[in-house]
């Protein structure tokens, strides 16, 4: 099978998965108690009836499901129930770039520091560099961003006054959210890359490379890193997806107008279409990123075949 055929196959495979996810999202959302138009003060029955009719909420559930599935398949995620006159598509198009930018920043931050720490730790195994970095990594994995964020705000925003505590206007606003969001991935990536490299270090072909009299630089970059960092690549797809979805908390802490904010609000407000739309959108991103990683693998590891 050629690479193109393989890619096409995988793309076709996305359709049934998306149908399943849409189905789950739809029924789970409806299974949650309450509805989009519940207020503390109940609406007069006739007004509520009108609203429900407008959004077709008075149809049988299975009809609503069919209609929703059909419109999702055409790429239309429907109107928001809470933001009148705005569609879910519009909201995603407007707010996702903010989340994406934050996610990319966090990812670059995580890759740079995670890889450096992991590579150095592995090459200096069981020496002080290793212990220091892995100590930090353990710290990074253990502290959730819901703790780290406010802590950083407290230290750098309030006590030292170096960085803004919240907002999303100037580039310095991005510093603390990026660190908060990326810290745990710095930790993960450093641990994964360290383990991967240590495994390669024990391989015969690394000894062979040394026996060829190659300079250390070539041994490390050509022979050790290539195989040692493959596990990081397979981690990156899911990691990036969860950085994008994980920014929910960070966006909340730092008041960043990203998609995560809308997701949380939509779930709390029972804004059915927005919540489902966000879930479906995130799912699609996760699937696509995994596909990208698998394709990347075929370039990086010649042993991988398309089957």
């Amino acid at each position: 099978m050629s690479r193109l055929q393989y890619t096409l196959w995988r793309l076709i495979g996305i359709v049934p998965v998306m149908v399943l996810i849409t189905t789950f999202a739809f029924f789970l959302m409806r299974a949650a108690p309450g509805g989009p138009f519940d207020k503390e003060k109940a609406l007069p029955p006739e007004i509520e009836k009108n609203i429900r009719a407008k959004y077709h909420l008075d149809d049988p559930l299975i009809v609503q499901y069919g209609r929703y599935l059909f419109s999702v398949m055409r790429g239309d995620l429907g109107p928001s129930f809470k933001y009148p006159n705005r569609t879910v598509n519009e909201i995603i198009v407007e707010s996702f770039p903010v989340s994406l930018k934050l996610g990319l920043l966090a990812m670059c931050f995580a890759l740079f520091f995670g890889l450096s720490a992991g590579v150095i730790s592995a090459l200096k195994q069981n020496r002080w560099q290793d212990y220091t970095f892995m100590g930090f990594a353990l710290f990074g994995v253990s502290v959730p961003n819901i703790v780290l964020g406010p802590l950083l705000v407290l230290i750098f925003g309030l006590w030292l006054g170096w960085l803004p505590v919240a907002g999303w206007e100037s580039p310095v606003d991005a510093v603390l959210p990026t660190i908060t969001l990326g810290a745990i991935y710095v930790a993960y990536i450093s641990r994964i890359s360290r383990a991967g490299i240590l495994e390669v270090l024990g391989q015969d072909y690394v000894t062979v490379a040394r026996a060829k009299g190659l300079p250390q630089r070539i041994v490390v970059f050509r022979h050790i890193l290539r195989g040692g960092l493959l596990p990081v690549v397979s981690f990156l797809g899911p990691a990036f997806a969860s950085i994008l979805t994980g920014s929910i908390v960070v966006e909340k802490i730092f008041h960043i107008p990203g998609l995560g904010q809308h997701f949380v609000q939509a779930a709390l407000n029972r804004d059915y279409t927005l919540a489902m739309g966000t879930v479906i959108f995130y799912a699609l991103i996760l699937i696509l990123l995994n596909l990208v990683v698998d394709l990347l693998y075929t370039f990086l590891d010649p042993r991988v075949r398309y089957e």
């Binding site: 391989q203 015969d204 072909y205 000894t207 062979v208 490379a209 040394r210 026996a211 060829k212 009299g213 190659l214 300079p215 050509r222 022979h223 290539r226 195989g227 990086l300 590891d301 010649p302 042993r303």
Partner: peptide, 25 residues
């Protein structure tokens, strides 16, 4: 200096050809 000798003056063949070649190159 050892790097200059390894591979140039002294060549080595290892036991297991299945693991001695780098699979990525």
């Amino acid at each position: 200096q050892m790097q200059q000798i390894r591979g140039k003056e002294i060549g080595m063949v290892f036991q297991d050809p299945m693991t001695s070649l780098n699979p990525f190159l």
